[in-house]
């Protein structure tokens, strides 16, 4: 029995199709839900895909955060601990909605960045024991607003609550301080309860010829399936 996964499509979403293909590649059954839906059809796994939504006008993710389906998603997370994965724009939407703390700010370069990066698991999310500290993934980033920001007081809480899930990693200098976008503490992803989100794109790293197939491993761990 294949696991059904909801992939949310907002107006202007552009990584929804890639996410559907990636989920099919690891044997899941993706179901595309539209922004105006008022429920998740009982699905237990939801991906907010990357790319853009509503042109990322106003702020990246800000308009999608107000779409009707986000009401349903928030309720399903609070009531049923539905498993949510926010990729890139999905991360931005979750922060704009207030489901995850913090915000994604413009890259310090002031520019869009598309390239491969290494990320490393910092702490094991409570809902996903399969991700263990020190585990590394090579995944591409593609964003203009990926610098994670959080109020100084909340930053401490974030670390203490083991919500810092992923950090960027520089294998050449084995540096803990490297970040391609200026994220505080080089944070690449966070997790809280049944929600996790990251800026890199696992759905773009599904085959060796894409430059990496670490995305298979990442998505399989998220979906708690063995691949």
């Amino acid at each position: 029995m294949k696991t059904k996964v909801a992939v949310i499509r907002f107006p202007g979403s552009n990584c929804d199709h890639d996410t559907v293909l990636a989920l099919e590649r690891i044997g899941a059954e993706p179901v595309t839900l539209l922004h105006h839906a008022d429920n998740l059809r009982g699905l237990r796994y939801v991906v907010l895909p990357g790319g853009f939504s509503y042109g990322d006008y106003l702020r990246a993710g800000a308009l999608a955060a107000h779409a009707p389906i986000m009401d349903a998603l928030q309720e399903a997370v609070e009531r049923d601990q539905v498993r949510v994965l926010g990729i890139c724009n999905g991360f931005q939407i979750l922060c704009e909605r207030g489901i995850l703390p913090g915000a994604l700010h413009a890259n310090v370069s002031g520019e869009f960045r598309c390239r491969m990066e290494w990320i490393e698991v910092v702490s094991t999310p409570a809902a996903w024991p399969g991700f263990t500290p020190g585990m590394r993934f090579r995944l591409p980033i593609a964003h203009a607003d990926g610098a994670y920001r959080i109020a100084e007081g909340e930053r401490k809480t974030l670390w203490e609550s083991h919500s810092v899930f992923l950090r960027y990693h520089d294998p050449v200098n084995d540096s803990q301080e490297y970040s391609p976008n200026g994220s505080v503490d080089a944070i690449a992803g966070i997790s809280q309860g049944s929600v996790m989100a990251l800026m890199p794109h696992p759905e773009r790293a599904m085959e060796q010829w894409m430059g990496s197939d670490d995305g298979r491993r990442f998505l399989s761990l998220w979906l708690e399936v063995n691949r």
Binding site: D18, C114, R204
Partner: peptide, 14 residues
């Protein structure tokens, strides 16, 4: 220049 372009979306780029 090219790192400012998304060269991977649609996941067909070899």
């Amino acid at each position: 220049i090219y790192q400012r372009y998304d060269s991977m979306i649609q996941t067909a780029t070899v």
